[in-house]
């Protein structure tokens, strides 16, 4: 393997080689994560509901998702007659592409960071906001009232929940004194300081709620609320268009849980196992929580969702931020 990398470097130059390797690794991560998550979600929901879940293909139905992907690839990508074609085709791409950048910002271990940006947290939110454009483009261009309603709901929901998400992370950023995600992890691992969820429990709770809403997961899945809006913004998307939206959803879940793990749960820090393992364990623990939310709660109504954000989460996270600032100033 090192010999191969050396040969590649000789041919393409160091930067391009690293880029290609990183890109390949992240693309593999996205695909594997989505496939695992689909299976995981099915299994967890089956466990909650007293069923078996997929059992047919592979041990415990592990190959089910792979076959689903093959089925989706084989489907005809229908583009309905009166859609805005360019926007309609671009929408899933716009929704999905930022995910790649976001994944590269996560600290998988001390030395496995694809982009060690100084303003890492800000980049996460900046690129996370772009994907919203894709969702709205999909809803807008579909020429379908359900899709339009879903798109409109997604925009107002994401704008509302970006604030508590940002404010709750800012409390951690203030405590750590840096915007660099890797450095925030290092602060937690250095010298018995402890993970941030011990100092910022309220911020962690707000973060999890806001992250669930930000990724449009139940009980906050009103943009695609299937019992109201059929399928929301992706009502008109068949085959791979739908699959890409799906892929984007699971990737964003991974990202927000990754950021949460890094900020609150000490990232790759942990005994015995190597760093990336700990990181993944923490990420999937958070993902498990999100999956459990989905299979336990009914869905909030649109105005209740807004109330929750503007009247509860934002004041709470602001107060939390101010208390944190005060404590840091005084100590």
């Amino acid at each position: 393997m090192p010999a191969l990398i050396a040969a590649l470097e000789g041919m393409l130059g160091t930067w391009l080689t690293q880029f290609l390797l990183g890109f390949t690794a992240l693309a593999a991560l996205i695909t594997l994560n989505a496939m695992f998550m689909v299976w995981f979600e099915r299994k967890v929901s089956a466990w909650v509901q007293g069923r078996l879940g997929p059992m047919e293909h592979g041990p415990q139905g592990t190959l089910q998702t792979l076959l689903d992907v093959i089925k989706l690839l084989g489907k005809e990508p229908i583009i309905p007659a009166k859609v805005d074609r360019t926007t309609f085709i671009l929408a899933p791409v716009v929704a999905f592409l930022p995910a790649l950048v976001l994944l590269s910002l996560l600290p998988y271990s001390e030395d496995l960071v694809f982009t060690n940006a100084e303003s890492g947290i800000l980049l996460v939110f900046a690129f996370g906001g772009v994907s919203l454009m894709g969702v709205f483009m999909g809803g807008w261009s579909s020429n379908n009232k359900y899709a339009l309603l879903g798109g409109v709901r997604a925009v107002s929901q994401n704008i509302a929940y970006e604030l508590p998400l940002l404010l709750s992370t800012m409390a951690v950023v203030l405590s750590a004194g840096t915007l660099n995600i890797s450095k925030i992890v290092q602060v937690q691992t250095a010298g018995g300081f402890g993970w941030f969820f011990m100092y910022q429990p309220l911020a962690l709770i707000i973060y999890i709620i806001a992250a669930t809403a930000e990724t449009n997961r139940a009980p906050f899945d009103i943009p695609e609320a299937e019992s109201e809006l059929v399928a929301g913004f992706h009502t008109e998307y068949p085959a791979m268009g739908f699959a890409v939206f799906f892929l984007a959803e699971y990737t964003y879940m991974f990202v927000v849980c990754g950021v949460g793990a890094a900020l609150f749960l000490g990232g790759n820090h942990g005994p015995w196992l190597p760093g990336p393992c700990w990181f993944l364990i923490k990420v999937y623990f958070l993902l498990f929580l999100m999956v459990m939310f989905r299979w336990t709660f009914p869905r909030l109504r649109f105005d209740q969702l807004m109330d929750l954000a503007w009247k509860l989460l934002i004041p709470l996270s602001l107060a939390n931020l101010m208390v944190t600032a005060l404590v840091i100033k005084l100590v």
Binding site: S45, Q49, G50, A225, W295, P298, R299
Partner: peptide, 16 residues
């Protein structure tokens, strides 16, 4: 009814 409200699990429990 619960499924209309967005909760899927009670549907399957009730079906059982």
């Amino acid at each position: 009814f619960i499924m209309d409200l967005g909760g899927f699990t009670p549907f399957l429990l009730a079906f059982q």
